[in-house]
Amino acid sequence: MSHAISLTVNGEARAVTLDDPRVTLLDLLRERMALPGTKKGCDRGQCGACTVLIDNRRVNACLTLAVTLDGAEVTTIEGLATGDTLHPVQAAFIDHDGFQCGYCTPGQIMSAVGLISEGHAGDDPERIREGMSGNLCRCAAYHGITEAVLDATRRMADADTASDADERASA
């Protein structure tokens, strides 16, 4: 039995016919949509390498059956930058050396984007460490990751404040 689903991936509407209900979102992206930026580390929700946003919430793509995603909006690492302009979290990961081998990095970055938008960690390093603990890094770039998320959080907050100010000024 095949299943037809429609979903939006990185802003693009995609119609997918799944011939197999077992396909996870992770394998759908990697093996059937030519979006291999999302990585497989454990395939069991234990490492966070496959983190993507579904309807703007960070989740493990490896434990999400693709067939359940009819109508969902998925954002992957490939959809984060705007043209050549990196997302502030991406830029901060480079600036703070928040990775070494780079394999867990797409998941770390998507998780950080999710964490920042959840808004519970703020710029408290301890809460950021806790909030990023679902993303393992075997190279152990954790120090740089925390610094990067902290920095990006502040940059994004400043940008919001600035755009609010612009709106007020123009009003």
Binding site: G45, G48, T51, R57, R58, V59, N60, L63, T64, S111, G114, L115, E118, G131, S133, G134, N135
Partner: peptide, 9 residues
């Protein structure tokens, strides 16, 4: 419990 990602799902 678990991680932010798992709790979201």
């Amino acid at each position: 419990g678990a991680s932010g990602q798992l709790r979201n799902a």
